[in-house]
C-alpha cells in the first residue's frame, strides 16, 4: 500500500501539469481564433483567384509560358510545412509520416530535394540521407511575406532554369477544428491548363462566344499573373498550416487537461480509501486495547 504522502505528492504534481495544459489551451485557443479569422477572411481570395486564372488561361489558348511547360519528372522538389513547436498531438507526426512515404516512393525514380519549413521537419529530415535544399527553422510564424516571396521566387527560378521538373508542397490543411487534412499539392508546373485543353485545341472555346481583350496583352499579363499565383498559393498554404497547428494544439491540450482531471479523480479516490482504511485500523486497535483492559 503506498503511503499517503506519496499519493498527495502525485496529486499535486498532476494538478500542476493540468494547470499548465489548461494555460496552453487558453493560449492556443486565442491564437487559433485569430488564425481562423484570417483564413476565413482570405478564403474568397484563395478560392476565386485560381478560377480567375483558369478562365484567363482557357481563353488564352495554348500559351508557351515556362511555368506551364511540363517535363519528365527527374528532379523533384518537395516543400514540407510543419510547425516549430510540438505538443500538438499528431499534427506533425502524421505529416512527417506522409513525407517519408512520398520520399520513399519518389526517390526510387528521381532525384528528390527537400525544402523544410519548421523545426519539426528539420529534426526529422536534416540528415545526410536526405538532400535538403533550404531550411527555415526560426519561428515559422515570423516567416512573414518577404521570406515566403523569396522562397516562391527561388522555386520559380529553379523551375524556369530546368533545375527541377516539378514542385510539390505537403502541408496540413485547416479543414475543421477536430482534424487537419494532409494535403499534397503539385505547385509547379501549373497544371490547370490541362483540364482546359481537354475541351479542344482550338482557341475558340470561350463560353461567351467572344474572345476577351487583354490589356496589356496576353504575355505581359500572364507573365505577372502566373508567378503571382505561385506566391499567393504559398501564403495560402502557410496560413492554413498555422490555423491547423493552433487547432491541433488546442485539441491536444484540451485532451491533456481532461486526462489530468481523470487521473486526479482516480488518485483522490485511492487516497481516500487508504485514509479511511488507516482510520478504521486505528479505531480497531483502540477498541481491542480498551476491551483487553476491561477484561483485566
Amino acid at each position: 500500500m503506498p503511503a499517503l504522502i506519496d499519493l498527495r505528492r502525485r496529486i499535486k504534481s498532476v494538478r500542476n501539469t493540468q494547470q499548465i495544459t489548461q494555460a496552453m489551451k487558453t493560449v492556443s485557443t486565442a491564437k487559433f481564433k485569430k488564425a481562423q479569422r484570417e483564413v476565413l477572411q482570405s478564403r474568397p481570395y484563395w478560392h476565386t483567384f485560381p478560377d480567375f486564372l483558369r478562365n484567363a488561361i482557357s481563353t488564352a489558348g495554348r500559351v508557351p509560358h515556362p511555368l506551364l511547360e511540363r517535363r519528365e519528372e527527374e528532379k523533384v522538389i518537395l516543400v514540407i510545412i510543419t510547425s516549430d513547436k510540438g505538443l500538438s498531438g499528431a499534427f506533425n507526426s502524421n505529416l512527417l509520416g506522409a513525407a517519408q512515404e512520398f520520399h520513399q516512393e519518389k526517390s526510387k525514380s528521381c532525384d528528390l530535394q527537400l525544402i523544410l519549413i519548421g523545426k519539426k521537419a528539420a529534426q526529422q529530415f536534416n540528415k545526410p540521407a536526405y538532400h535538403v535544399g533550404r531550411m527555415y527553422t526560426d519561428q515559422t510564424h515570423l516567416l512573414a511575406g518577404e521570406d515566403l516571396k523569396d522562397l516562391s521566387r527561388f522555386l520559380i527560378q529553379q523551375y524556369i532554369y530546368c533545375r527541377t521538373d516539378a514542385v510539390y508542397v505537403l502541408y496540413n490543411e485547416f479543414k475543421s477544428i477536430l482534424a487537419p487534412r494532409i494535403a499534397l499539392i503539385k505547385l509547379l508546373p501549373i497544371e490547370m491548363i490541362d483540364e482546359v485543353q481537354g475541351l479542344g485545341d482550338d482557341n475558340a472555346a470561350v463560353p461567351t462566344g467572344l474572345l476577351p481583350d487583354w490589356e496589356p496583352g496576353i504575355f505581359p499579363l500572364l507573365g505577372v499573373l502566373l508567378p503571382k499565383y505561385i506566391e499567393m498559393q504559398f501564403v495560402h498554404f502557410f496560413s492554413e498550416s498555422i490555423a491547423a497547428e493552433h487547432a491541433a494544439r488546442m485539441i491536444a491540450m484540451d485532451n491533456a487537461t481532461k486526462n489530468a482531471e481523470d487521473l486526479i479523480e482516480g488518485l483522490t479516490l485511492e487516497l481516500n480509501k487508504i485514509r479511511q482504511a488507516s482510520i478504521t485500523k486505528e479505531l480497531l486497535e483502540i477498541m481491542t486495547a480498551v476491551e483487553a483492559l476491561a477484561k483485566k
Binding site: 467572344l210 476577351p212 499579363l221
Partner: peptide, 19 residues
C-alpha cells in the same frame, strides 16, 4: 484604373482581362 488610364465599364461590356 487600368495601366493606361481609367476604363469605364457598363453592363454588356465585352470580355476583358486587365491589369
Amino acid at each position: 484604373p487600368s495601366l493606361e488610364g481609367y476604363l469605364g465599364i457598363l453592363p454588356g461590356h465585352r470580355p476583358l482581362f486587365v491589369a
